[in-house]
Design a protein around this nucleic acid. Structure first.
Length: 495
RNA sequence: GGUCUCAUGGCCGAGUGGCUAGGCAGUGGUCUGCAAAACCAUCUACAUCGGUUCGAAUCCGGUUGAGACCUCCA
């Protein structure tokens, strides 16, 4: 069964068959974090969503180049013309150099995100290391007549742009309507038009992150780094641009405008946006102050958390929803995800331990059909705009068969060798390689588990039930459960 | 106010014109020294009012409710 991968393109608001610009190759750019605080649950979603896409492209044997940036220039807290740089603000609060702030939070971001088994991108460019490229892009836009300089700052000229292009296409906005809705800014703005956005900002003497430029000392505007870096690493025109839905406007809209203004072409063919994670139905976000950091989730250290949740539980939780749906956080939901994830890991471990033997059993056609339908279902779901929730549902169908084999209620030989292999490869590939789920058991714990099981077995044989119960309790302490089956004794994660 | 989404069983969450998504929780069984795990069976659904259709949770319209973006945000 071969089928095309279809992805939802925000630009056309349709699912489209993915056609790469160059046969067999994919370039994807995803907006990474602005590093002025710890990564929260919301940051985990795009990291995981596009990790899945990256992994799936690799699975499909594409030669993929994945670029995810780190924005380590703070930009502005408030209004586009006034206010303080976010990183500078944090630096002042913590009394450290802003570059040090960015460095620290970048490290913490990596620590918390990589715990989620997210693959590192091929390139992870930083805005501060691409100042020259941003200056050049700005100059290019001035030269092309789409930007103007005022008092040491350079702004994008939307009016000019709109004579030739159509600003607002991605987010379905119309420039005129936006202008009518824009409240008049107080004070003396340098901009010709309130909607014009900064490409380069003049830096006041007290501003700490600043660089020399043809327009004087300043720093780059927010949207510019993505244009400069995506162009540098993926070219003027590449396949996929991703990020959170909240970046659609204005960030991605501005990137499109900058791409056209610089390079005379739009940066990306497909725009993909993951939806938000909500908490009590409300968006979780830094600006709303209702976020839970990943570190807090892992440690259970937040007033809203009834438990700590492992990185893989978080990953599984996120994958149980399609990436374009909002996903609501709750302890119940995380708790259910934890159990579901353990169930999957128990099946994975059992499956990896199976040895196929055929003893002349009759083929169980019903179960073989379940395998076929689940295998096809996994592929179909991934091809249908990365529906990981449906992939997981099919993996649970296979889990049932795996458990039946493990419990000896379904002889392994009731499946043909090919069917068993098909199930095994599919289950393992989708669970580990594509969904990126992994067993979290520290390997140094295994010897003591097997030791406990040995003692359990002996105690059982002599009907020393007090010891049996004690060993059960002992293992339960580390969330391990004894599986006391007719034909063997094994352990499993507590679900 | 403008633009746009969404409303599914106790909870989370897929799906989309006719065919049981799945997980968690519940109930009844099988198994067990008792359990657990697992398996089998099973109960709760498609906000509301109309329309289209042989048939709608799924399409169309109204109503109600929730959310997102319009300012920095994953």
């Amino acid at each position: 069964m071969q089928q095309d991968l279809r992805v939802y393109n925000t630009k056309t608001r349709k699912k489209e068959v993915f056609n790469p610009i160059t046969e067999g190759k994919v370039g994807m750019y995803v907006c990474g974090p602005t590093v002025y605080g710890d990564a929260h649950l919301g940051h985990a979603r795009p990291a995981i969503t596009f990790d899945i896409l990256y992994r799936y492209f690799k699975y499909l044997k594409f030669d993929v180049c994945y670029v995810r940036n780190i924005t380590d220039v703070g930009h502005l807290v408030g209004d586009a013309d006034e206010g303080e740089d976010k990183i500078a603000k944090k630096a002042r609060e913590e009394k450290i150099d802003p570059f040090e702030i960015a460095k620290q939070y970048t490290e913490r971001y990596h620590r918390d995100i990589y715990a989620l088994n997210v693959l590192p991108p091929d390139v992870e460019p930083r805005a501060t290391q691409h100042i020259q490229e941003q200056i050049e892009a700005t100059q290019q836009m001035i030269d092309n007549g789409f930007a103007y300089e005022v008092n040491g700052s350079v702004y994008f000229d939307l009016e000019k742009y709109n004579e030739k292009y159509n600003y607002g296409e991605l987010s379905g906005r119309i420039l005129d309507e936006m202008q009518n809705n824009t409240r008049e800014l107080d004070g003396q703005s340098d901009k010709k038009n309130p909607l014009d956005f900064a490409l380069w900002k003049f830096a006041e003497p007290e501003h700490l992150m600043k660089w020399d430029s043809p327009w004087g000392i300043g720093y780059p505007g927010w949207h510019l780094e993505c244009t400069a870096m995506s162009t540098k690493y993926l070219g003027k025109h590449f396949d996929i641009h991703g990020g959170g839905l909240d970046l659609m406007f204005p960030h991605h809209e501005c990137e499109i405008a900058q791409g056209n203004a610089c390079n005379h072409e739009e940066p990306a063919n497909y725009w993909m946006h993951n939806n938000m994670i909500t908490i009590n139905g409300q968006k979780m976000g830094k600006s709303l102050g209702n976020f839970i950091t990943l570190e807090e989730i892992y440690n259970g250290d937040h007033k809203l958390l009834e438990n700590k949740y492992s990185p893989m539980t978080v990953r599984f939780f996120i994958l149980q929803a399609q990436y374009r749906s909002t996903l609501d956080f709750s302890n119940d939901a995380l708790g259910a995800a934890k159990k579901g994830f353990n169930k999957l890991m128990n099946a994975l471990r059992a499956l990896e331990g199976f040895e196929y033997i055929h003893n002349g059993e009759e083929t169980n056609e019903k179960q073989e059909k379940v395998i076929d339908s689940a295998v096809n279902g996994c592929l179909r779901a991934m091809n249908d705009d990365m529906n990981t929730a449906v992939v997981i549902s099919h993996l649970f169908k296979l889990t049932k068969i795996i458990n039946q084999i493990n419990m000896n209620t379904l002889p392994i030989g009731a499946l043909s060798a090919e069917k068993f292999e098909l199930m095994k490869t599919t289950f393992i590939t989708f669970t580990k390689d594509i969904l990126g789920l992994k067993d979290e058991m520290p390997t140094d714990l295994l010897p003591s588990i097997y030791n406990a099981l040995e003692r359990y077995k002996t105690a059982k044989e002599v009907k020393d039930y007090d010891s049996v119960d004690a060993i059960r309790a002992e293992l339960k302490e580390i969330s391990i459960v004894v599986k006391d089956m007719k034909h063997k004794i094994d352990w499993a994660y507590e679900e």
